[in-house]
Nucleic acid binder design. Sequence first.
DNA 1: AACAAGACCTGCATGC
DNA 2: TGCATGCAGGTCTTGT
Length: 279
Amino acid sequence: MPELPEVETVRRALAARLVGRRLTGVEARRPDLRKALPRDLATRLVGRKITGIERRAKYLLLNLDDGHVLIAHLGMSGRMLLYRKPPPPGPHDHVILGVDDGTVVYFNDARRFGLMTLADQSELDRHPLLKDLGVEPLGPGFNAQYLRKALKNRVTSIKAVLLDQHVIAGLGNIYASEALFRAGISPRRRARSLSPDRLARLATAIRAVLNEAIAAGGSTLRDHRQPDGELGYFQHNFTVYGREGEACPGCNCNVAATGGIKRIVQAGRATFYCPRRQR
DNA sequence: AACAAGACCTGCATGC
DNA sequence: TGCATGCAGGTCTTGT
């Protein structure tokens, strides 16, 4: 499911219900996620108060009152679901967290590409999962100049680089295609060949599409749910993603003549674009 | 160092 | 209906 907007949507909903609450019950039902759950996860969590919930790239960071951080990643299919009255747990409900006002959180992840682990707050910057991440695209360090430096030696396609979490932390496959469309840049172009002008347009497009997607609660194709069970709605605003063969909304070209939006595969991932509007 | 390809795991849509 | 195939929002590892 989740790229930055989906994770941010989940973060906000969890923060509203869980910050200031104390964990009263923790059940690790299935430890073999992408990374094995810590054996003592439940012991270390019960009794702790959640003091804040942050996001770094696609990671959720739950700060605890003992100086530890619960790091969670949703992988491709992960959900965090909030309940007042939880249903009987299903086969993909891997971790269950209960807090002191009766709220229960299910960490559900059919494909088990997600993970949960504990880290020291004071060493978070050096944590193996986080230490090599690039800038936050919605943060102050992200602009055309950053991109110019980061892409200087990159000979691969701009699309592949946008997915590189060492460069931009949190952008994923959907929003990379959407941002390139908005910026009018071909996903096949070599990263280092982009002019400063076009990099500025790209940075603006990335920020805009991410902010709009967050405002819509993210995109639900299959798996994404907001923690209250609500869907995301930004998929209705996709201009190119998943729209192979459809008319490009940005040019007046005749679909029958041009083939419309094209789907290609780059670095093993599907890319969607309009070959006429994106150069 | 940078890059491409494969691996991880499950569910779903499609086609025969 | 059943079965095979391909595909999916991500990341990590391996080999070049």
